[in-house]
Design a binder for these strands. Structure first.
Lengths: 189, 189, 189, 189
DNA sequence: GATGAATGAGCTTTCATTCAT
DNA sequence: CATGAATGAAAGCTCATTCAT
């Protein structure tokens, strides 16, 4: 592993894996991923020790990508509601614009192949959000519950929102508003 | 009429499949499922034409099982809040008491192998709930959103609640209350 | 085996086997043959000990059927040419009218599953022909070669003739004449 | 360019398939063929997409082999009888010296698994013979019949001849002469 | 005797992984 | 390092045969 020669190939493999996992879940074959990336079957294994390592890396890669969309412009100084709204809306638009990535995360997440450590590391990039939520709980703006619990609820409502916006494009804005309404009310006392 | 198909064997196969899918997702092998059910490998295929058919049947079987837990005692005459609470609490306790079943549903749901038709048929048993929610939307008790959207949000929050109650058994009652609070607020205006 | 209760069932099985073997060769499954005969899978095995026994019986049954078409009206008193012509023409018309039977014989014959003893017993019904040919060899009308050799040549030419008449129905009569011409010349000095 | 596909392995697979098909027909298992070729089970499928493709390739390979024996030394300038005799004798000696190959062709031919296109491509190598026979028909040396019909008759008589020479080695030369006599007379007016 | 569920060996094919080139 | 042929352990599924009903 260490220092692979070509970041392009690594990225091509991750991109191909994203599509393959979105389509077929963890059943996607390493051969098809390599083909999708335009590299030889064996090459995959010089970048990722085995299929499981590839999947953990893929999950982290996708979460990183999500983080890079959500976090820039994060309104550190606004009130809690605006900060949650920022996160919610960015999450939703990332999901709408990156269907394969969102599906791949969801497939990995529900496959039983994702290690707890990986899931935990995937959260790291969102610490600013966690901290904000802690403060908000302290100050009584959010309901007094574990952060992870609140975070999970927001995430699930956001996922549901994405699915609805996706399948009912005409009502997209309405569903976005409904989704955020639900999320905000769900986590406030 | 020779030996009739045995409901016990069918159930044993579904039970074994539940466990196997909970453990390994759709990667669970038919051989391991048959072994788990105590029947020969070939026998699985006299009860289910192929693996895919088995999975669709398993999903429906589990949803049926869930329905049989949730629906009895449904307080048709109570106010909306109590009815939603009934559903929520029953759903959560079923999930807590049937970890493998809940996991199996979730694995199937996220696998990409579940047909839309199967998902739709799985909802049939819960029509009383849908109808109640329609009325509640009409009367302004629930927020004006598609029933399926509201239903999905409740389901997701319930799932999250189950996961938390499961991993923090000490705080179970508190999380149950928090979960219902979140769900109720999420779907009300 | 011995005395099966129902000759109808036995015949239905042989008829279904004929069709199945014509279609798929010896790969035809016993289940499909039973289905074709309208009996249960297990019933096949009360009439025929196993698949191999069925195939030997099928071959004999078909040869018997062929014999019953060819031999009646055999012109014991005509000259050799007319007797051979009788055989040839009857063989060809049987083949044309019983495509599945002919194909089944050919599939069995070429499958490597047919026992030599079965092949030999299949010849028994045609002893009058063999004897006639012996006489004809004695009297110098036919070329001095083993009867079986001459018989095989006639058979092969007849098969070829059938195939041609079958695929070129317009020229049927011409091919029949050509076929007999070839056969008669082939076996005469 | 990694390890290139090895013609030796391909040939070993075809040789093993020849033997296996000669012994068991199309029922021969891919596992036994791979074992016979001294390669892993999976390797067969890097050389032949699936069993059917293997069988079509095998047929063509064997016909090619036959063509390479028959055609060299073909007396383009001799009279028609000598040319037919060349073909007949070469065909027969190839068959005698390559029992497994001949049997394999015959098993494939009668199995119902051989595609028409494959059968047609198998004839390509013998175009010189077809053309010669066309000329001979034109010039009245051969009986006025479709070339394929005449060709089939020769082939069938040659096959019969081979079988007899094989089972009666003492009379081999006599049967060869008888066989050619029969064939030549069969196709001439 | 007839039925068809039950069996498990066996089949073809796939696939993660290795390693010769 | 990149390649893709080679590997062989599964995988899903079929099927001849048995036997409880």
């Amino acid at each position: 592993m260490a220092r692979p020669l070509s970041p392009e190939k690594r990225n091509a493999l991750l991109a191909a894996a994203t599509q393959a996992v979105a389509d077929l879940g963890v059943q996607a074959s390493t051969a098809s991923i390599a083909r999708g990336a335009g590299v030889a079957e064996g090459t995959l294994f010089t970048y990722f020790e085995n299929k499981d390592v590839l999947f953990q890396a893929l999950y982290l890669h996708l979460k990183e990508d999500l983080g890079e969309t959500i976090m820039p412009g994060y309104p550190y100084e606004s009130d809690f509601r605006h900060r949650v709204e920022h996160i919610f809306q960015r999450y939703v638009s990332w999901g709408l614009e990156n269907k394969a990535k969102r599906l791949a995360i969801s497939r990995l997440s529900g496959s039983g192949q994702l290690q707890d450590a990986t899931r935990a590391r995937g959260m790291e990039r969102f610490q600013a959000v966690s901290r904000m939520m802690e403060d908000a709980v302290q100050s009584g703006v959010l309901v007094n519950a574990p952060i992870a619990f609140l975070y999970a609820i927001i995430e699930r409502i956001a996922d549901t929102t994405i699915e609805y916006m996706d399948s009912h494009p005409g009502d997209a804005q309405r569903h976005l508003a409904l989704g955020f309404h639900a999320a905000w009310r769900a986590i406030t006392p």
